[in-house]
Write a protein that binds this DNA or RNA. Structure first.
Length: 460
RNA sequence: GGUCCCAUCGUCUAACGGUUAGGACAGGUGGUUUUCAAUCACCUAAUCGGGGUUCGAUUCCCCGUGGGACCGCCA
């Protein structure tokens, strides 16, 4: 069976992680079924749609590895077709012109609110009989919704949803200015694009009942629907732009890598037995709508971090290094070409200490910086004994013909015996002088990652 | 307020109607360790409440409670 799906965001704000997950689920299903995945930019709200958001959407999807088939569809380009269909519905008596002014509608709503009853458009113009047509009002076109009975949608995630038709009002399909609304445009485009599966956030659930009626009026095939629960912020509220970590960019900035976030998003609201780590290939093979839960899930940054740590540890060092370079350039400092070799060599131990690319940066700062600054607090630790140890080490290090772990170990042992101290007594002062910090990679790793000259320079 | 949906450790989630209710993250304890980490071992921690149905209910039904979504000439 053909499997054609789409992700249809509106470029009226930055795409957040919930949208990315929706796109991911669509894409995964398309890949699994050897179908198509399209991206449709729903830019019919001219006021709020912005080119920068469109760009942000495409870049976000691209970063996480979601590639859409064909060029992205731009909904506004199809507006004439939408209008045409609206008029077809009008001609076939599935829709009608409504001459209510906006004030009139507003009044009705307020009245309902006062009385505490739910507002539904009163269908004044559905069957106008001899109502005089106001000359000064441009009509909107409303769809004739079913008035009685019930409708059932078989949702691939939610199961059967049953509602009374009376709560679905005669919704507007063409505005006063003649432009189509979302309900109409979405249906027409989905039909034209031959979409077979509509997978979207469950905030669209009610729309399904409106859209289904348009399909039926036009005698078009109705796609399958799947409404996935929304993602909540860590506080449990709806994800909003104000949440610091809500867009892909927020995570890139933290040094999260693409595979980790993809894996996280996959497992948020979906599970396959006890499996936690999914390669891209595995996610395509194993993903299904049956495994999608029905309740909303909360974002958990520590989980993302832990997944990121896993992916960093298991990543090819060269690849990781490339990601690191891009990250540093963008958010920290460009890695100078003279330091590249040394950093790359050090990836093997740097990655074992890192949860993010930023952690790698912090742990490699001693390589990146030429001037090592020692804090007053750390200076206190450098007493005369420590200074002697450093001097002794430097003396032997300069003579060392072959700098390797074995020789360093020998030297350290000798110093420990001579100064009647322990490993820490030798390691810590050297670490402080070499890196400007008490914390960091193993002392042998540090020494081996720097050139012999550099070590000598720093110890002198 | 109306309509619809949902409900398992703090979090993400497993569990043909029969399990000591499992895993992962976080947290805790201990081992290892030159620091911070990492790592290894172990531990704490959940079926929202109340009724049914059933020999047996996390699982099915009803009620309550709690949470969410929607209620635009936004999408």
């Amino acid at each position: 069976m053909a499997f054609i799906c789409r992700f249809a965001p509106s470029p009226t704000g930055p795409l957040h992680i919930g949208g990315v997950r929706t796109a991911l689920f669509n894409w995964l299903l398309a890949k699994k079924n050897k179908g198509k995945f399209y991206l449709r930019i729903e830019d019919t709200d001219k006021e709020r749609s912005k080119e920068e958001f469109k760009k942000q959407i495409i870049e976000s999807l691209d970063w996480i590895g979601i590639k859409h088939d064909d060029k992205e569809y731009i909904q506004s380009k199809n507006i004439n077709k939408h209008k045409e269909i609206a008029h077809e519905l009008l001609k076939k008596d599935f829709a009608y012109k409504c001459y209510c002014s906006e004030e009139e509608i507003k009044e009705q709503k307020e009245k309902c609110k006062k009385q505490g009853i739910p507002y539904v458009y009163n269908r004044k113009w559905r069957d106008p009989k001899d109502l005089p047509i106001p000359k000064n009002i441009q009509p909107v076109i409303r769809f004739k919704s079913k008035i009685s009975g019930n409708s059932i949608v078989k949702d691939l995630v939610q199961g059967e949803i049953n509602i009374a038709n009376s709560i679905i009002e005669d919704f507007v399909i063409l505005r006063q200015d003649g432009s189509p609304t979302y309900q109409l445009s979405a249906v027409v485009d989905d039909h034209l694009m031959k979409i077979t599966h509509v997978i979207r956030g469950d905030d669209h659930k009610i729309n399904t009942f409106k859209q289904k009626q348009i399909y039926e009026a036009l005698k078009w095939d109705i796609p399958q629907f799947a409404h996935i629960p929304l993602i909540h912020s860590e506080k449990g509220s709806k994800l909003s732009k104000r949440d610091m970590a809500s867009t892909i960019g927020d995570y890139i900035k933290k040094g999260i890598i693409s595979d980790a976030l993809r894996n996280y998003l996959l497992r948020l609201g979906w599970a396959h037995k006890d499996k936690e780590i999914f390669t891209l290939k595995e996610s395509i093979e194993l993903f299904d709508l049956k495994g999608v839960g029905k309740s909303p899930s909360k974002l958990d940054l520590t989980r993302i971090l832990s997944l990121n740590e896993y992916y960093i540890k298991h990543m090819d060092e060269k690849k990781l290094f490339e990601l690191f370079k891009v990250f540093s350039k963008k958010f920290r400092k460009k890695v100078e070409s003279s330091k590249e070799k040394s950093i790359l060599k050090s990836m093997s131990f740097l990655k074992n200490k890192a949860k993010t690319l930023d952690d790698i940066y912090c742990n490699s700062e001693y390589i990146l910086q030429d001037d090592i600054k020692i804090s007053p607090e750390d200076s206190k630790l450098l007493d005369s004994t420590s200074k002697n140890i450093i001097k002794d080490f430097l003396f032997q290090f300069e003579k060392m013909s072959n700098v390797n772990k074995e020789n360093l170990e020998k030297t350290f042992k000798g110093l420990i015996d001579k100064h009647k101290t322990n490993f820490k007594g030798v390691g810590q002062p050297l670490r402080i002088v070499l890196t400007g910090s008490k914390f960091g990679p193993g002392i042998y790793d540090i020494i081996l990652s720097l050139s012999k000259d550099e070590v000598i320079k720093r110890l002198s």
